[in-house]
Design a protein around this nucleic acid. Structure first.
Length: 571
DNA sequence: GCCGTTTTCGGCCCGACTGTTTTCAGTCG
């Protein structure tokens, strides 16, 4: 029973309690406990063994007893009992837009207890006979059921970025729009987003809303009010627009940046001081304060500025209170990229083009890490070709000023944990990235052994895309990542934060976990084309979401210090 | 179900939009 499994059960209990019409604060308590456990850097088993469960804020005697039961027996009688009262299919109804717990209660009261029954009742126009439900809601539900698959979809950050640029550009071009910013999970840099939140400062909200719903990239208008509107764009992703008076911009921007959990925690804290926070400002002593900037917003409630990427309710408010917020790594700190491919394997560009693109981005170094020989389909390099490439790199470096190409490899981790090049070959390279590209489906034990061997190889500097997941397409290897983090910390091997928006591997949560263990990271783009060097942005967001500071990231080091760091691996 | 320099009982974030209601409940973020 992992933390995550306990969280999922508590989440489900919270939903069932809502449907059963229990005290809403009880269900919130379960939800809150789930959130706290999710972000806790400590294993529930340890908490149980050490009898420290109730020290966790949000966990009292009742929840502690339930966690103990779950951890020791693997079951929870209370949960089994609840599941009888509200089957899984009923919980699914909550995912239909516009349908909440109260509406589901009405369905159940009228013996509609499955999605099929719900759909049939809607088709036969029986739903509209139920209290509180009319023709429009009935149609909404049919529409929602049909679009359920599509709507549950989350969008890659790269897709969201494209849409935000388009929509933001359009809004910024409106006369009445004084300022345009993105908010929501997009601004927090989550690896996927469910929808886009855009905020416009304007004295003429109706005019802005009218132009928004009328934009050429709008496919469907979902809702349209005086202050906000929701549309489905031609790209499929939903966009929410909020319009506020310029003086309220900062408070509103904070509000719509979220996360919900962060906002709830912040407001709860404000309430304890006798203040009130809403999107319209901070009320203190019956006076409404409207900060001009987010920095001022936090200042007014006695906290240091919390960057958007940290606003997840993962302990950032407590850290801000103690004055212990980390100073997050920034794009400007990055001095080079340590994982890119050239035309020699499956990349698109020559060494010169790569070097030029890196210099144009202000980098001082770039590691060329083409694939190794076993990856035939990528035209992986043999030892001979790798040596030739090294000579070419040496020749180019003699021409560069204030810039260095580093000779490297993305050496394939073979199925038994051996590497595709021998140690003698690896020792002649500046940078060694080791990655898995085959046999993803090995069992956990085999994978653990495979990675352990690689982490203990003194020539390996960086483990590339450590979990192998492709967001929304391929699950991570069945690897024990916690064990990899510990080994990486012990051996001084860096782990990659692969910045490719399809990967973002390691993810934010593992980064956070690793940093607590003292792991160092490399934020690399794995670019196969010079344009992809700009993916660094996504890796940076992920690193920041994991609370990474400059000193946690090796490619923030100046070249001489990086070289020293690389040599410490026994090269 | 949790929690306590307002409380061991009585609180628990705040406001907009929509639909089904003639004044508000439910949902959502």
């Amino acid at each position: 029973m992992t933390n995550l499994e306990v969280c999922e059960i508590f989440q489900e209990i919270a939903e069932i309690l809502e449907i059963l019409g229990e005290n809403p604060f009880k269900s919130r308590a379960y939800r809150n406990a789930a959130r706290v456990l999710e972000s806790a850097n400590v294993d529930v088993h340890d908490l149980v063994r050490e009898g420290r469960l109730e020290e966790v804020p949000g966990i009292g005697s009742a929840l502690a007893a339930k966690i103990r039961e779950l951890v020791t027996t693997g079951r929870l009688a209370y949960y089994e009992d609840l599941k009888q009262k509200a089957p899984r299919d009923v919980l699914e109804m909550l995912k239909i837009p516009g349908v909440g717990a109260k509406t589901v209660q009405v369905f159940m009261h009228h013996n509609i207890t499955s999605l099929q029954e719900l759909e049939a009742a809607a088709r036969d126009q029986h739903l509209r006979e139920l209290p509180g439900i009319g023709k429009k809601t009935e149609e909404e539900i049919l529409h929602g059921l049909a679009a359920m698959q599509e709507r549950q979809k989350r969008w890659l950050l790269s897709v969201a970025t494209m849409a935000v640029k388009e929509i933001g550009g359009y809004l910024a071009g409106l006369d009445k729009a004084a300022r345009v910013e993105a908010a929501g999970s997009y601004r927090r840099g989550r690896e996927t987003v469910g929808d886009l939140d855009l905020l416009v400062a304007s004295d003429d909200a109706p005019a802005v809303i009218a132009r928004f719903v009328d934009a050429p990239w709008v496919r469907e208008v979902v809702a349209e009010g005086d202050l906000k509107a929701t549309v489905i764009t031609v790209w499929g992703i939903q966009a929410d627009l909020y319009v506020v008076a310029p003086s309220l911009f900062a408070s509103t921007w904070h509000h719509f940046t979220g996360s919900k959990e962060h906002n709830v925690a912040l407001r709860e804290r404000a309430r304890q001081h006798g203040w009130k926070i809403s999107e319209y400002g901070i009320v203190k002593e019956e006076e409404t304060l409207t900060p001009a900037t987010e920095e001022e917003f936090f200042q007014l409630i006695g906290l240091s500025y919390i960057p958007p990427e940290m606003r997840e309710g993962w302990g950032e408010i407590e850290a801000a209170e103690r004055g212990e917020l980390p100073r997050l790594v920034e794009t400007g700190d990055i001095r080079g990229d340590l994982h890119v491919h050239s035309r020699a394997s499956d990349g698109a560009n020559t060494l010169e083009e790569l070097a030029e693109a890196a210099m144009a981005r202000g980098y001082r170094y770039l590691a060329v890490t083409d694939h190794s020989r076993s990856l035939a389909f990528t035209n992986g390099l043999t030892e001979e070709r790798l040596k030739e490439q090294r000579e070419e790199i040496d020749r180019l470096n003699r021409e560069f000023q204030n810039f260095r190409l580093l000779a490297g490899t993305e050496v394939d981790i073979l199925s038994d944990g051996r590497l595709d090049f021998d140690d003698r070959m690896l020792s002649q390279l500046d940078v060694v990235v080791a990655s898995v590209h085959s046999r993803f489906r090995q069992d956990q034990e085999t994978l653990n052994r495979r990675f352990e061997a690689v982490l203990k190889n003194e020539h390996v500097d960086i483990i590339g895309h450590p979990t192998g997941r492709l967001i929304g397409r391929r699950d991570p290897y069945a690897l024990d990542v916690g064990r990899v983090l510990e080994l990486a910390a012990d051996t001084g091997t860096a782990l990659e934060i692969n910045a490719n928006p399809d990967r973002l591997d390691l993810n934010d949560a593992y980064v956070r976990q690793g940093i607590d263990l003292g792991v160092r990271f490399a934020i690399d783009t794995d670019a196969h084309h010079v344009n992809s060097l700009d993916d660094m942005r996504y890796g940076m967001l992920t690193a920041r979401r994991g609370w990474a500071q400059r000193q946690d990231v090796i490619n923030t080091l100046p070249l001489d210090e990086l070289e020293k760091w690389l040599q410490r691996h026994g090269r």
